[in-house]
Design a protein around this nucleic acid. Structure first.
Lengths: 211, 211
DNA sequence: TAGATTGTTAATCGATTAACAATC
DNA sequence: TAGATTGTTAATCGATTAACAATC
């Protein structure tokens, strides 16, 4: 079914569909048409139908979409039911906040290990996990085979650790650093979160408002 | 010069150009051709020239681009020299990490106030700023006229506060919440950072690797 | 001058929107 | 059956890439 390659634009819209459908479900609704969903989300009905039909026919003519069913299907498409093992490197302000703030279980992952190179942090418990020394990453990965790593470390440290982790079998990165993993390792899945870039984009918009 | 409307795709690439040029400058290089930059960044030379020519002719035929000059021009385009006033609402794990981790000054902003609704946090000092009660937002905004607000609060709280801030003259949001500001306030500049969406996207990619 | 590389126009590719027949 | 709404094809729009004349 989902054999043809799905475009990046479609993939990036899926989580938002998932969230909106979750809210509609929570509000007690059971069905919705592409037109009504389009009005609530600020999209076109055409785009919604096109997006969904990349993965199969989830709707019914004359009726629309069953909200609970559709949300569950999108969850499966996103792989949220798989609970892939994730490790987090770098327990500074940012790393700690990510560990504590993000609900991994509802996004398809399980946080299984957290690491920092600073020996003074090692042993401290965050999210029920002891902070381990980065010196023990090799050992931990061979035993636990994490699928992804979350990099909350500076660029300088990120290069070495990312390369090391890829050798150890890590298949994807949630990358908060400025090291460009995708550039150096084309086969690996990378999702970048670049605060600075995002904030600069906002700066541009403010300085170029017109209408 | 930059009168025609610049596409979103171009704007989102500008911070990355800015970063790469900064690194080249730091490495002691003075000039670069679009071809060499394209190889380093994983883009096409055509795209780079098209992007830059949205804003003016920064290069020189037969020579290429002066790295320092080009970076400085992109910085001006992004408005990094303007130091717009920013306030941050929500000093939980995430808010604190953003306040401490992000270098606002180098991204066109100055953090001037931080707020939380929890009275137990009020008075605590973060980044040299006392945490203020959200009850005092009105007063603070009338006196300090912040241009943007950073929302590190749950969706439920975000709606009320965003609507309030817009009435108080806030022109943009760096939005970490799931409240869809842009949907309800079309005129306002919004840059969303949605951790959950980003992580779900990574989940999708891991579950659909092929090559 | 010859070589290199830009700025810019034209061609291609991909994503979004519109239209409508199929069907519940 | 009539009305509604999907799934899907065709048309449009926008972004990327290729090509090349201009020019340093």
């Amino acid at each position: 079914m989902s054999n043809s390659i799905i475009s990046n634009s479609v993939i990036k819209r899926l989580p938002r569909y998932y969230r909106f459908l979750g809210e509609l479900k929570a509000a007690g609704m059971t069905r919705i048409s592409s037109r009504e969903l389009s009005e609530r989300m600020g999209l076109t009905a055409s785009q919604i139908r096109q997006d969904l039909n990349c993965f199969g026919g989830f709707g019914q003519q004359g009726y629309g979409y069953n909200i609970e069913l559709l949300q569950s299907e999108i969850g499966k498409i996103l792989g949220l039911d798989m609970k892939k093992s994730a490790i987090l490197i770098g327990m500074g302000n940012l790393g700690k906040a990510v560990a504590l703030h993000v609900n991994f279980e509802s996004k398809g992952f399980r946080l299984t290990g957290v690491f920092d190179s600073k020996e003074s942090l090692v042993g401290q418990v965050v999210c029920g996990l002891p902070i381990r020394s980065t010196a023990n990453i090799d050992e931990f990965c061979r035993e636990n085979k994490p699928e992804i790593a979350i990099l909350c470390i500076p660029k300088t440290a990120a290069k070495g650790i990312a390369d090391q982790l890829i050798k150890l079998g890590v298949k994807g990165f949630w990358n908060f650093s400025h090291y460009d993993i995708a550039l150096n390792h084309p086969g690996v899945s990378v999702e970048n979160v670049h605060f600075g870039d995002s904030l600069m984009t906002l700066s541009y918009r403010l300085n170029n408002e017109q209408d």
